[in-house]
Design a protein around this nucleic acid. Structure first.
Lengths: 144, 144
DNA sequence: TTGCTATTGATATATTGTTTCAATAAGGAG
DNA sequence: CTCCTTATTGAAACAATATATCAATAGCAA
């Protein structure tokens, strides 16, 4: 998992100790297909017999966010979600059930951005385009 | 405040009783300039000497959301925020410095949504388009 | 006014997030 | 490899937000 190695090296090279908590949280993030909440990570680790305090998980996530290695998001209820930083700006297709997120390519909103800059006086430097829905696998699950 | 009357009539015409809790929560929403959290409403009412249980506030908000009279959002930490429905779905121009948000009109991404449904198998039910930038006033402030 | 029942507030509980602090372990020095 | 410093940790207490339950209440139709 070269992604994982890259992250831990980033931590080291910024002078941070490579501790158990950091290693484990980073590993879970690398293994996850999409967004995870702090308590998702906590439970995943617990299930693997690894105990990392909730506070530490938040601390690691905060640190990884500061280093731009992880992105923090929130959508729907249930607090903030995290995942490995992706290249480029955010164009996502997010499953509102399981949190899986797929990126997609260009979106064609740049002309609109230009118009908005002119009409609003804002200096736009970023945009998100995000679709929410049910992924194929969640569509087939039984509703409880 | 005709907005307020419209909301209460909507409730009545859907067969819901016009109760104290519904009236008060609706009124606060009508008076507010922007987004409010459930506890913001709770405290606003308390300050006016009106007691409405937290549970009821959530119930009223849920109901108003179902009737599409209120929109639920979340940005930043601190849970969900609510405000009266605006026309159209969420297309915002957000100042990354001061948080001011301006809505803007239609965005033309629906064709893209269709394409994505076909190529991904997702069942899309919502989207966000959000631009981030510096609003005119923040452009003139000194950087710290 | 009365009676039915949708609706409520209180309460308990769950979930998410932050703070504090003594104990621990990472990793450089020797 | 061992010691030492101190960055980092986990536990626990706390705070804020959200939901479930249930007996009591208040809307509203008749």
């Amino acid at each position: 998992m070269q992604q994982y190695t890259k992250l831990t090296e980033q931590l080291r090279s910024h002078g941070y100790r490579l501790t158990g908590a950091r290693v484990q949280v980073t590993r879970i993030l690398c293994e996850a297909p999409g967004y995870l909440g702090a308590y998702d990570i906590y439970n995943a680790l617990k299930q693997q017999g690894i105990n990392v305090g909730v506070a530490s998980i938040y601390r690691v996530l905060e640190l990884l966010c500061q280093l731009n290695l992880v992105q923090r998001e929130e959508f729907g209820s249930g607090g903030e979600k995290f995942r490995l930083s992706q290249k480029g700006h955010t164009h996502q297709l997010v499953c509102s059930e399981c949190g899986v997120a797929k990126e997609f390519g260009n979106c064609g909103v740049n002309p609109l951005a230009k118009d908005l800059e002119n009409s609003s006086g804002f200096k736009i430097h970023e945009h998100w385009l995000r679709f929410f829905g049910l992924c194929p696998s969640c569509q087939h699950k039984q509703p409880l």
